[in-house]
Write a protein that binds this DNA or RNA. Sequence first.
DNA 1: CGGAACGTTGACTGTCATCAATCTCTGTGG
DNA 2: CCACAGAGATTGATGACAGTCAACGTTCCG
Lengths: 198, 198
Amino acid sequence: MRTGLLVLRTELPDKRRQILNLLYLRDIFRTSFSPRLPEAALAAAVASEIWRIPSNTFETLPNSDPCLGALLSRQLAAQQSRANLHVAAIGSLNGEERVASFLIELALRIGSTSPDGIFFQIPLSRTDIADYLALNADTLSRIMSRLKARGIVVQKTRGRVLIPDGKMLRDLSPITDAIVALHGSAASTQAHHFSALA
Amino acid sequence: MRTGLLVLRTELPDKRRQILNLLYLRDIFRTSFSPRLPEAALAAAVASEIWRIPSNTFETLPNSDPCLGALLSRQLAAQQSRANLHVAAIGSLNGEERVASFLIELALRIGSTSPDGIFFQIPLSRTDIADYLALNADTLSRIMSRLKARGIVVQKTRGRVLIPDGKMLRDLSPITDAIVALHGSAASTQAHHFSALA
DNA sequence: CGGAACGTTGACTGTCATCAATCTCTGTGG
DNA sequence: CCACAGAGATTGATGACAGTCAACGTTCCG
C-alpha cells in the first residue's frame, strides 16, 4: 500500500470484534495473511491508496530483481515481528500499558514534532482502538481520561492529540524499546523522544 | 527447522513471561522475526533439529529457484496468518476457549488418531502453555480440570492426553475453522475430526 | 527415601466487562 | 442561526473472570 492506514478486522459470533493488525505505508498484505476467521476483512481507517499485485506476479517478483527480493524479505520480516510484538502487548500488558504502547506507536508513525511536543491525528475510532488493544471501549475511555488527567496526553480537538512529554509516556510501557525499533525509523524525529538515551 | 518444536519466548520486567509463537516442522524463523523485547529468545520445547541458513543466502534463495521462491512466499504467508490468528485467540477468547483452541492446534499438529480418539503428548510445560495462552498457570490448571471433569480431555499419563470426541472440543472454540485451515493439512487424519462437515 | 520441580486447589483480590444514564460532537433541515 | 437527531464518547455502579497467594499433592530425580 502507498498511503493511508488499513485495519485487518474480524468479528466472532457474539459480536466480539478484534483488529488483528494495522497496516501502514509500504506494508504488504496478501489475502493469505489473514486467517480464515468469520468476517475477516481489510478496512480503510483513513482514505488509503493501494497497489494491487497479482499473486503470481508477487511470488515471482524476487526473480526479476535480486535486490527487490531482499527488500521484500526484510519488509515481511518486519511485519512478522510486529505481529509478534502485538501478541506480547495484548498478552502481557495491562490496559494502561497497552494504551501507552499504542500512543507511542502512533506518535512514531504519524506524529509530527512541534515545540509543545508530539502532535497527531488519531486515525481510528474509539471502538477500533479498543478492538485493536483487546479492550472494551468503555475501559479505553476511562484509561484515556486518566492519562489526560495526569497530563500525559492532551486532547486538542476531536481525534487530535498532543503528547507534551514523550518520556512520561515512554515510562508507561514496558515494551517501548521494541516499539521504537519497529515503528521508528532511525531518521524519525519522533523516535528520539522515546529513546532511552534522550 | 526440520523436527521438534520451538517457542519464541520473552520476559518483561516484572517476571511477566509470554510465548509469542510456536514453531513447528518446516517453519521458518529469522532473528528479525522477533521484536526487540527484553529476553526474547528461541527455546526448544522438545529436542529439535534446525537448519541454519545465512541471512544473505536466505534472501537470495528465491533467485536460484523460482519454484522455491513461491514455496517460501507461501510458507511465510502461512506463518503471518498464524501470528494473526494467535492475536485473535488471545485478544478475544476467554480462558476456556483459548485452551480448547490450543488443544485443537496440538491435535492437528502432533496428534495421532486411534479408535478411542486423538492421542498426543503435550510438548510444553504447564507454565509454557499458560504463557502461550496469556493465562496464569493456576487458571490454566483449573480450566484443564474442568475439561477433564466434563470428559472432553482424558489425561493418560503426565503430559499424555486423549481427546475422545473431537466434535465436543470443536464446539468449545469459536475459531476452530481457522485453526483447522492453518494447522491441519488437507491430508491430515486429525483434521476431519474437527471439520464442520464431519 | 528425600528433595525439588511441577501441578492442583481454595480463598481472596483486582482488573476489566457490562449495562445504563448522560454528555458531546457533527451534520441536517427548518 | 438554531434546533434536533443520531452516533460516538464519558462516567458510574455492579458483576464476572482471571490473577495472586498459600497450602497441599504428584511425579521424577538422585
